[in-house]
Design a protein around this nucleic acid. Structure first.
Length: 343
DNA sequence: GGGCTGTACTG
DNA sequence: CAGTAC
DNA sequence: GCCC
DNA sequence: CAGTG
DNA sequence: CACTG
């Protein structure tokens, strides 16, 4: 019998452990990232579990009867399973507490800000004894960073801007993003050499909140430089984060919305849309399936691993088809489970 | 034991 | 080139 | 760290 | 100063 | 950016 209770209301209020653990594992991932390149895969593993927990419908405690039971969940292995059980029983994780003692923990939150990676933060801590955001703001005001290797004028300007913007870290509600997306689309469509342009990313997935606006634009290479110039002219961004011939990234409007635009060939449109629509979990799932079938997916298409031959990429439909999967509409590309093989 | 995506852009 | 982001 |  | 990595 | 020429 099907109960007329939707999954949202069923899950809300029952996933408090998931949220807490997801945050802890995210922080642990940052710790390991900070520790250096040898630990980067460990960091990735923790970040993956953090995301799995965030997406999980039911509370993790329902699966936490034993290490073996947790281990069955994708991304969770023996070590993290033990830590989950430890948390549910004692309220904390010893390994995490150790990491907090050992590292400049307050500094690591800066890793959530664009432009602050592990290397930058390590340098700040080791060379200038910076331990947190306030230290950094003060050091910037007093021009303490100027003599550091790798911290030139541009880098400092970008750091200051990123720090200022981080407080008003806006994800906008879907409807607002849709309006802004439509506005940008209209402006860019007015450029003659643009053959086609479409919204991608979380906006296309119609996620309830949208962090940035992604677009895929079709144009032949010889027109791209001019197109990028034209886009900048008609949009008048507040700031250009990156501009090349295949990629334009900028900050737009009063709300300081980040807009990312990829320029691709017409025959790459499907693969580019698939790739940049996500979600990340969905992409990873597709990638894994492709690999099992001896194929490889990237934003340029699906390729035969052996021969390197390009097998698909013009449309999303043909790509799902080639992988032996049912087509998944953008709204449903949430997690790995949204992918199902054809009968 | 060994892979964990691959690419574009910045400074 | 190393670092960063996607 | 996880997963072949 | 422009070009390279 | 650091470095080179």
């Amino acid at each position: 019998m099907v109960h007329p209770i939707n999954k949202q209301s069923l899950s809300s209020g029952k996933t408090t452990h998931n949220r807490a653990l997801s945050l802890i594992f995210h922080k642990m991932a940052e710790c390991y990232r900070y520790m250096g390149t040898e630990e980067r895969f460990r960091a990735t593993a923790y970040e993956n579990v953090s995301r799995v927990l965030a997406n999980m419908k039911e509370d993790i405690s329902e699966h936490a009867g034993s290490v073996e039971e947790l281990d069955e969940i994708g991304g969770i292995g023996e070590s993290i399973a033990e830590k989950i059980i430890e948390y549910l029983q004692t309220g904390k994780i010893k390994t995490f507490e150790e990491l907090k003692k050992k590292l400049p923990f307050d500094l690591l939150e800066l890793m959530d800000i664009s432009g602050f990676g592990p290397s930058t933060l390590r340098t700040l801590h080791e060379k200038l004894g910076i331990n947190n955001r306030d230290d950094l703001v003060k050091a910037l005001q007093e021009n303490k960073l100027n003599k550091l290797k790798g911290f030139g004028e541009r880098k400092l300007t970008n750091m200051k801007r990123a720090l200022k913007m981080e407080k008003s870290n806006n994800r906008m509600p879907l409807q607002l993003a849709e309006e802004e997306g439509a506005r940008l689309l209209r402006l860019i469509k007015s450029i003659k050499a643009v053959e086609k342009i479409a919204l991608a990313g979380s906006l296309r997935r119609k996620k309830e909140t949208v962090g940035d606006i992604d677009m895929v634009l079709v144009a032949v290479p010889r027109n791209r430089k001019r197109i990028v110039e034209e886009i900048i002219r008609v949009i008048q961004p507040q700031k250009i984060l990156a501009r090349g011939t295949t990629k334009l990234s900028m900050i737009v409007g009063d709300r300081e919305t980040q807009v990312d635009i990829r320029l691709v060939h017409d025959y790459e449109f499907g693969s580019a849309m698939l790739y940049f629509t996500g979600s990340k979990e969905h992409n990873i799932r597709l990638r894994t399936i492709a690999k099992e079938r001896g194929m490889k997916i990237n934003e340029y298409g699906i390729f035969d691993v052996k021969t390197g031959e390009r097998l698909a990429g013009e449309t999303e439909e043909e790509m799902y088809e080639l992988l032996g999967l049912n087509y998944v509409s953008p709204e449903k590309r949430i997690d790995a489970e949204s992918v199902e093989t054809k009968d």
